[in-house]
Design a binder for these strands. Sequence first.
DNA 1: ATGGCCAATTTTATTGGA
Length: 264
Amino acid sequence: MADSAAMASSFSLLTWNVNSIRVRLDNVLSFLDEHQPDVACLQETRVEDRLFPRVPFMELGYKVSLNGTKGYAGVATLTKEEVDEVQSGFADPPADKHRRILAVEVQGVTIYNLYAPNGTSLESENFPYKLDWYARLRAELDAHRVGQDVIVCGDFNVIPRPEDVWDPAAFEEKLHCTSAERSALTHLTDFGLKDCFLRHQTGPGFFTFFDYQHRRWEKKEGMRIDHIYATPGLYGRCRSVVHVAEAREDEGPSDHLPVLGHFD
DNA sequence: ATGGCCAATTTTATTGGA
């Protein structure tokens, strides 16, 4: 990505729920140093912007864009190239009550970094908030992003298909798998976004999240909730999406795997 | 008892994650 047309040539993009950037700093830095993604979208940074450890990322050659707050949620987007436009939160009022969205434009591509609401439980007030959050995001794309090259990536907190969780029967109509959540995700992606992972692998057993509890990693009992979606032109250029399992073997890992996409 | 979580803040409990 050396010239102004760089995004027209190959690039790589990472999305990773790091579960605290301060605790995970060494893990993330070593990953970036090894893989050198052109764009890195991090979620659950869990720190206010003024305390974000910018310097070590700048030393690796990244521009740092932030939308974080104290204690929970928060997203950060690191780019090798200069960012032309930054949008924190939804484009239009009212502002989101959490820090879950950061959109940047790099080399003519609009990249949404998302940390979708979990929903907490089907009975929680956070559940309709989650559904509404998805609807607002679709409305925003309709209002502001028609005709653009768009990547929407991050922690979606929705399991798209039954085979994207280790025990489909047990998760039927449970949180992350309800018809309402899947409809919300489908409505969002019906904007014209395709799941880049499914371009390469449609079988069962590929997961991005493994709970710290119940030895889920050791038992390979996970769920696929971290995604890279792209508009058709970019989707057609996607040559691989990999869930980088090695990251879970490092000391003090996140409960999410890094998801690394390469585009020609 | 054949299984045990993790991180941040409100910190020696509580909250939220998924």
